[in-house]
Nucleic acid binder design. Structure first.
Lengths: 236, 236
DNA sequence: CAATCGAAAAGTGTCGACAGTCGACAATTT
DNA sequence: AAATTGTCGACTGTCGACACTTTTCGATTG
């Protein structure tokens, strides 16, 4: 007798490979500021600490290098990427460029479900502003913007957004918050959503430019007030 | 006794590490169509052929995966990325988005040197159209657009352009040419350059949209006429 | 006392090896 | 004959090892 000739709905077993796990562990440590920008990331040390060999650590390093989280100097290994102020300017400039486009596309492809999802996420952002949890707030802010890119329907654009976001999180994780005033984040998103609702391209682009320009100035100011971290301290 | 107390401007000797060399070799093989889309790239085979061990090959694979040239399925290794027609649409859509921005920025930062360099590159493109060398023509076309991104001054944008370009070259290398008419490529660049010269944002964006939209349609049409390469042939 | 030199420690680049996994094909059962 | 199971070869994921390079740190010297 056969056990089952048809699929019975078992959840697929995904064997999380080491590289992915290591990459995730390192990413968390970096965007949480646990490993500060400029810090050396020694393969041997990471391998020892995680109880794995160096090979998968090296591959995870390459992965994070391609995402802009690490830099590698041949013969000298990896270290957490440092961002000069003008590099942050480049990042935000590019981000505004693609999010403008994403928002216009999203408005064209807007469905009732999408509209509701956006509204929901913005509400969550408002709620998060009430409690004091900067890391969570950064996360929810990121999700709102990511949702717009998702709705745009351009998957390559979404991937790019993810890359830019993880890169930006190094510095945002470093300064620990987006603004001095936690309420302000959620509030500045409202005009953006309103602009998208209109469906008018020019208005949407203006909305993105206004909102992200504000965020840009906030981050740029905080970064420039930061103690210039040229540290080369090791990580255990 | 010290040889020199101050740097004298010698070109640094970069000991090309294996990973870079392997990555370059694989990239060439891919964008030249020597390893077709969908083909499996076995680590052991590549390692044997190049006379190296599998470790650097794996790292090079990760690198090319992040550039969108390879895809890796856990437990099944790497294979050359295949692009569905709608993924090519995504790529071109994104490319137009960032090149619009790059062109506007470039016009703002334009210097006599930059203007000359652009004109020169376009002349080279015209010359290349005369001789029959599709690969060279793709190369020079790419250089012209890259120059615009360089002049824009946004390095992150330039890096993104390089990524998109190498990804696009998989399919362009596959079809072997940009258009049926080799002369047309150079000609369609002229209005773009003229638009940039005006310095007017709207006109520049229109110029980019017109030029790249034309290229998009050309590539999209050729791709859709392509025999759907779902091959899984191995590479020696 | 500061600068320099050099040996030791730590770390990186690469390799060969082994175990586990995947895919294909033959043998077997229904 | 069709479907299932067992087997085999090839390949991937991971590991430990070795040679070479970089860094560290104490000893030496001016």
């Amino acid at each position: 007798m056969r056990l089952a000739s048809k699929p019975v709905g078992l959840p697929a077993i995904v064997s999380q490979d080491l590289v992915t796990q290591i990459a995730r562990a390192l990413t968390d440590a970096i965007i949480s500021g646990q490993i500060p920008p400029g810090a050396k990331v020694a393969e041997a040390a990471v391998a020892r600490e995680l109880g794995v060999s160096r090979a998968p650590v090296r591959e995870a390093g390459r992965l994070l290098e391609s995402q802009g989280l690490l830099v590698s100097i041949p013969g000298r290994g990896f270290s957490v990427r440092t961002h000069a102020p003008d590099e942050i300017d480049d990042l935000y400039d590019l981000r505004i460029c693609i999010e403008k486009h994403a928002a216009v596309l999203a408005a064209q492809r807007m469905t009732p479900e999408n509209r509701l999802a956006l509204r929901r996420q913005l509400d969550v952002l408002h709620e998060t502003a009430a409690i004091n949890d900067p890391a969570r707030q950064v996360e929810e802010d990121y999700r709102f913007h990511r949702l717009i890119c998702e709705i745009s329907g351009n998957r390559r654009l979404l991937k790019l957004f993810d890359d830019l976001a993880s890169e930006l999180r190094i510095v945002i994780g470093l300064i620990g918050r987006l603004y001095d005033d936690p309420q302000r984040i959620a509030q500045t998103h409202e005009p953006l959503l309103a602009a998208i609702e209109t469906g008018d391209a020019a208005q949407i682009q203006g909305g993105v430019e206004y909102h992200l320009g504000d965020a840009w100035r906030g981050v740029a100011q905080l970064v420039r007030n930061l103690p210039t971290n040229q540290t080369t301290e090791k990580v255990s």
